[in-house]
Design a protein around this nucleic acid. Structure first.
Lengths: 351, 351
DNA sequence: TATTCATTTTAAACCGTTTTCATCTTTTTT
DNA sequence: AAAAAAGATGAAAACGGTTTAAAATGAATA
């Protein structure tokens, strides 16, 4: 039925092992035989069976990509296509394939990862998220299975884990400082899921900047939500109901910012005149908000590209120590931040 | 090293074939032996090797998902995560895995599909796009390999192809009629890539509606662009430079609409007061534009879910004839469409 | 011419399952 | 009690490759 290596061998009048060596272009085979075998392969339309190869090789040339728990809408964030595009590019270059997780809940995902690893379905795994106390990461670490994380592992005991990250703390700090410099004193922080390490880092940066400026962080100004737009909207309601409304908002994610801006516009609060906003990620559409949003470009594509790069490196050389790569970020100033008028600042201070 | 079926066999003091039968829960094995074997598996921490299984079974329990040519930014469209979420859900239910294409150009993708098929890496394939004269589709059809298309095949010779689609013609027609009903006469159409069948269907629907209303389609009002936001923006410049500006815009895609609205806002053309807009897809963020956009919900998730469903059906029963599923669409009225003032309409007519 | 050594090629084992077919027990039927 | 049928298990051959170790070939050296 299907043409196998044996058929080719017969056709070319050599042994199957020779054909195998021709496929892998082994130097042990003479040019003349190679040519002969290649012709036979072409004549028969031979194509190697991937599973047989994987079985014999103990290698699948496949990378498992683990999405976060997508029960909520997280998944519709354009962040994911973009990070996958980065992974794809590198994977394709090195002739690796991508195997995507399909689980929706934490349990499903955990089970799926076990299957991938134990069933030897993939050579390595990229975690597209980093949570506090993540079973999946713990499991991979215990199994000593090649994997990389996008984001940093929270638990310091997982010290020898390879990861790609942004300096999220620094980014959040800079962003806060920027708002302070623009004269803002009441800066609120709308974070993502508190279980995600990136949220923790953002908040720490925010805190540090406020502290350095001698401002006491006010709990009312700190809100967390994991759903993207809905979360953004609720957060706005909470913040705008405060006696002392914030004059600036730091938002965890561009998509969330769309929700935030939508809600503000319904409340007839104008951006940036009444309130400044700055957020993170710089996904494609963030320049298309009205007004275009100021945000931190975290270079999503590179996160993916480097993660794949590091992972394949790890697969090929399992014993080299863990690498940690920081992808640079960059503030993209657009039109959602504004200097607070001096008089207003003065008035505030008298309050 | 790794624990195989043979190790389990030894541990349980049975033959490997018995263990295999226990795994598949064959009725030919007595409950007593099953229990014994299961205990041995647990004791040894046995997990079946996927590649070996695939090889013996001639089945991978894996679906190949082919993304469109992503050299351009198409890929960042939240359409894809959402359609994949649909596919994922069904696949997970039926215990199929997802294997993602990584190629960026048409050539790369074509080659990759060949690898998947000939290398028996996947049991079936879902095409996430449908183009005119697509080599990939032609190839899969020739090979008689199980596949489904999201969108409809253009070529009628590919009659026995299973696909999931929206009635895009009808949707575009309805949308156009809706604008006509609102009093619009100068309705422009900003389509996507003309090679995509969906674009052709949209345009046909647009044409039909205009014709029924006795309006001659004006070529200047019809523009195509494949890049998403950039395309949207250029299209706007072109249209707004016309002597007779359109009073309404039909846009192929929500993300493109963001670009369109951004550009209009720069030109100080107000939506919907100066111009009405309606678009397609209803991705998550489309309700977050300013103002929230009127769009056609095409039920992206269901497209994916049904595609996976049909495909797995096809894999399991290769000989049943091709199925074609239409997913219903629904116009979501938000705030980008407006009735044209009677006086203005009158004035126009005197022109 | 016989010996050595490098170069090519091959036979056979292996990767870890599934499955066909045969064998060995039991149980049922006559 | 013998024969037939049913039930449970096992041995061995796939599945389609890779790889180790050995054999064949040919060239170079003594």
């Amino acid at each position: 039925m299907t043409v196998t290596i044996k058929d080719v061998a017969k056709e070319a009048d050599v042994a199957p092992s020779t054909v195998s060596r021709v496929i892998s272009d082994s130097p042990r085979i003479s040019e003349r035989t190679k040519e002969k075998v290649r012709e036979a392969m072409a004549r028969l339309g031979y194509h190697p069976n991937f599973n047989a190869r994987s079985l014999a090789n103990q290698s699948t040339k496949t990378i498992g990509v683990i999405m976060p728990n997508s029960a909520n809408k997280t998944f519709q964030n354009p962040f994911f296509p973009e990070v996958i595009r980065g992974i794809s590019t590198k994977a394709h270059q090195l002739e690796y394939g991508l195997y995507l997780s399909t689980g929706q809940s934490d349990d499903e995902i955990y089970e799926e990862v076990q299957h991938m690893v134990q069933g030897k379905r993939v050579d390595g795994i990229i975690l597209l998220y980093s949570k506090v106390d993540d079973r999946v990461m713990k499991y991979l670490h215990e199994q000593d299975f090649p994997f990389t994380v996008i984001g940093r592992p929270y638990d310091d005991s997982l010290s020898n884990v390879t990861f790609v990250n942004n300096d999220n703390l620094k980014a959040a700090k800079t962003v806060t400082e920027y708002l302070l410099l623009l004269g803002h004193k009441r800066i609120a922080f709308i974070g993502g899921n508190l279980e995600h390490v990136v949220t923790i880092d953002h908040m720490e940066g925010y805190h540090q900047a406020l502290k350095n400026a001698g401002i006491d962080p006010c709990d009312d100004y700190i809100v967390f939500h994991d759903e993207l737009q809905e979360g953004g909207q609720e957060a706005v309601i909470d913040l705008m109901s405060l006696a002392e409304r914030p004059s600036a908002l730091i938002v965890a994610d561009d998509i969330m910012t769309f929700g935030v801006m939508r809600m503000l516009s319904e409340m007839e609060v104008h951006v940036p005149d009444d309130i400044s906003i700055i957020s993170f990620n710089n996904v494609m559409i963030s320049e298309l908000s009205a007004p275009p949003m100021t945000t931190v470009d975290i270079n999503i594509y590179s996160l993916g590209y480097e993660a794949a790069n590091l992972l394949i490196d790890k697969i090929l050389h399992p014993d080299v120590p863990a690498k940690k790569v920081l992808i640079p970020h960059k503030m993209i100033k657009r039109q959602t931040c504004r200097r607070v008028a001096a008089e207003r600042t003065l008035k505030e201070e008298t309050l």
